[in-house]
Amino acid sequence: MLELKRDGQSLTILPETGAALGQWRVEGHDMLRPVANPALRNQKGVAVGAYPLLPYVNRIAEGHFAFGGEEYRLAPNMEGCPHPIHGNGWEHEWQVAHRTDSHAILTFDHTPSDEAGRGEWPYAYRAVMSYELRADGLHVSIVIRNSDKVDQPVGLGFHPFFHSEAGSRLKFRTDSVWLTDDHGLPVEKKACEGEWDFSGGRALEGRTLDNGFTGFEGQAVLEQPGGLPNLTVEADRIFSHLVVFSQPDEGYVAIEPVTSMTDAINRPEIAGRGLHVLAPGQSSGGMIRFHAEASRRPAEG
């Protein structure tokens, strides 16, 4: 476990657990709400506060897809669900490439395996995660490089868990939302109107969500009236989709900026699905910034 510190903040990083975060503390406040999910076997029961999603985000239906004239089938990686989820970066140990008191860079190199039944991602890639505490909060950078000899479809995202309390409200702007089936796959696209319009903020209490939103404008605000600092999530333009996974009975909400819709690789007919294709040697990535009220500093000058 690594620990970073700066300006009343501390951050714990878990390289052995998929480059996940343990906790981000801001002036004594636990900003993340770590979750141990026994269905994610490769997290080995560790409670994590956030983790990277790559080289795809959310689910791939039945683990099956075709690309570049080849067909592939991935093995399920979450118990009780036939659809592999969140890529495979979270399933492996990462290496610490650089560290200072307030900044750490971690890397993971994936090489496809011919081992029978393994069923992981069929392309080689290198992923780089940068975690940095700055005066205005936590800055997270995610980059993936195609290390293979052929084109590779990719998706990126970040999966932080935050406290969801009585009175918590979430605010963001998006164009549309995907309604999902019992296994979290998109089945119907609706405009963000009525109950799906979060532009003015909506209460999370009593509302269970596991939905992908499209046309994300890059900012989400979690209002916390119970004593925790309000939180602002700001994402680069590449993160044009947002997944909200709200479990009020469990006391958390995941606010996940991502580059694509769920099962994007199998939805070529959908405009704006967000699938990115990297040629050999090409890279893609972006930054997500987390600002807590208690961590803000007056602007200089």
Rank of each mutant, 00 (worst) to 15 (best):
A279P: 00
W90C: 04
P268D: 09
L74E: 11
R41Q: 14
M261R: 11
G194S: 08
E193W: 11
R207F: 00
T100F: 10
G286A: 00
A66S: 10
E27Q: 14
G157Q: 05
P15D: 13
E27V: 11
G49C: 12
H163G: 11
I13L: 09
R202V: 10
V96S: 05
P153Y: 05
A271C: 09
N37W: 08
F216A: 03
A124I: 06
G274Y: 12
G68C: 00
A104G: 04
D197R: 05
E16D: 15
P112H: 12
S130M: 00
V96K: 08
P280F: 03
G49R: 07
L222P: 10
A104S: 01
R25G: 02
V244A: 10
P229E: 15
H291G: 04
L14Y: 15
F239R: 07
H98A: 05
H103E: 14
S284M: 04
E132D: 01
A191S: 09
I255E: 12
L156H: 10
V57C: 09
F216D: 07
A220W: 03
R25Q: 13
G80A: 01
A50R: 12
L11S: 00
A36V: 11
H139C: 04
R41M: 15
H159W: 01
R73Q: 02
D181F: 14
F216L: 10
E71S: 06
R25N: 13
V154C: 11
V57R: 07
A235S: 01
A135F: 05
V143E: 13
V258N: 06
V244C: 06
G274I: 14
R73C: 04
E120D: 15
